[in-house]
Design a protein around this nucleic acid. Structure first.
Length: 165
DNA sequence: TCTAATCTCATCAAAAGCATTTTGATGAGCCCATTAGA
């Protein structure tokens, strides 16, 4: 059986889009509480709201701000308090050692799991699929950084050993 | 073709343990990120 790699596209209705656009015009950087409320209002997941705002900001920045070094955050219409809903972030997820072990095993098997695998993992460890996606993103990113650093650290170590002699 | 979904990379910030490290959450993307489903 073929596994699904990508989540199927969400199709927002005109009514849903109206709600989202209104919210975006008021606050292009909504906090977690607002995103949750919007998710309830348009009957979707909070993670879909987050993606919609990310894509909307990207398009909005491009259409409205062709000049370099200008973005929504520097727009007078969007003062500091509108950014991040005054730092209203989702509560940090803390994983147990067994949850981490499951994630690590899955990562070693496939660092780019499709939506089906992520959903299965999410069910197995009892967290939302969106958290599994974020965990894999962070894990891949930090592995790349670590791999880039390794040659530098090795050469620094060789230099130190040379000085010691 | 439009735009939701996904990616990497940089950064913020909470938690664990006492100044610093680890790592989850969030945002941008600039010859204006790329990919791909409806």
């Amino acid at each position: 059986m073929a596994t699904k790699c990508r989540r199927s596209r969400t199709k927002f209705t005109e009514e849903q889009l109206k709600i989202l656009i209104d919210a975006f015009n008021k606050k292009p950087y909504p906090g977690y509480a607002i995103k949750q409320r919007l998710a309830l209002e348009v009957n979707t997941e909070e993670s879909r709201i987050q993606i919609w705002f990310q894509n909307r900001r990207a398009r909005h920045n491009f259409l409205k701000r062709p000049e370099k070094n200008l973005d929504l955050r520097q727009d007078r219409a969007y003062p500091e308090e509108n950014i991040q809903g005054v730092r209203d972030r989702r509560c940090r997820t803390s994983y147990t050692s067994s949850q981490l072990q499951t994630l690590m095993n899955a990562f070693m098997e496939n660092p780019y799991p499709g939506v089906d695998s992520r959903e299965q993992l999410a069910e197995d460890i009892g967290v939302p699929e969106s958290r599994v996606q974020i965990w894999f993103q962070n894990r891949r990113s930090r592995l790349h950084i670590q791999k880039k650093r390794e040659p530098e650290e090795a050469s620094a170590q060789r230099q130190n050993q040379g000085q010691d002699l």
